[in-house]
């Protein structure tokens, strides 16, 4: 007999040995909480939307007082308005993609939709990082082009400090903070992708490669 036919026969014969769940056991089981990847992605994505949405609230009021001296408040107000429009667009896209995920679709389509949903949120995070860097650069250019005002605000009166040295330190600190933020975000995404999506990505690529 062909080896595979032999395997098939054994495969069917072993069915008898499976444990049988009772009606009540099944009832209990289907009311337990799912731990599907789609659910985790949904939770993580919502957390990310909240994180980037709420991060603005943690900027101390005094910062805005400084920006006012540079006449930057109107610019920031408009930037924020545009920003919220973009955020709502992202949330809409995310929701739309999330809704298309269905476990009844074929395997290829299902994986494609899961990865697409996740990608929407990635773009959202990239957008936030780029915005953060861009705004930092603009604010710094404006502030450093008026060093007199900057020194007036930042150095308390009567303090003896070399103003060139002070500006130098300011720039270095800003760059370090910026790099540290990017490093944290990068590490976070390595973890999310490494742990949660590596297998899914690999399976999707494998299935895709069959079609080439």
């Amino acid at each position: 007999m062909d080896e595979l036919e032999f395997l098939k026969k054994d495969w069917k014969a072993r069915e008898v040995s499976f444990p049988k769940l009772s009606y009540n056991e099944i009832y209990k089981m289907i009311h337990k909480k799912s731990s599907s990847i789609v659910k985790w992605i949904f939770i993580i994505c919502i957390a990310e939307f909240l994180f980037w949405g709420l991060i603005n609230l943690f900027i101390p009021e005094s910062t805005f007082a400084i920006y006012e001296k540079f006449n930057l408040n109107t610019f920031l107000f408009i930037a924020q308005g545009l920003h919220y429009m973009v955020v709502f667009f992202f949330i809409y896209l995310f929701y739309k993609n999330y809704k298309t995920i269905s476990v009844v679709d074929n395997t290829g389509l299902l994986m494609k939709n899961i990865l697409k949903t996740r990608k929407t949120v990635n773009y959202y995070v990239y957008y936030n990082i780029i915005l953060y860097v861009l705004i930092s650069i603009i604010l710094n250019i404006v502030m450093f082009s008026h060093p007199d005002i900057l020194i007036e605000i930042m150095i308390p009166k009567n303090a003896v400090l070399d103003s060139d040295k002070f500006l130098g330190i300011m720039i270095v600190v800003q760059i370090i903070v910026l790099l540290a933020m990017c490093a944290i975000i990068w590490a976070y995404y390595r973890i999310i992708y490494g742990i949660l999506l590596k297998r899914l990505n690999r399976n999707f690529k494998e299935l895709e490669s069959l079609e080439v």
Partner: peptide, 27 residues
Amino acid sequence: AYPKFRGESKLSTWMYRIGLNTAITLY
């Protein structure tokens, strides 16, 4: 998924699909 199952396909076909999809995508 059951409330949306209309019986267009065989129950076993439908179960294969969801079973395999869950196995392949489950973390």
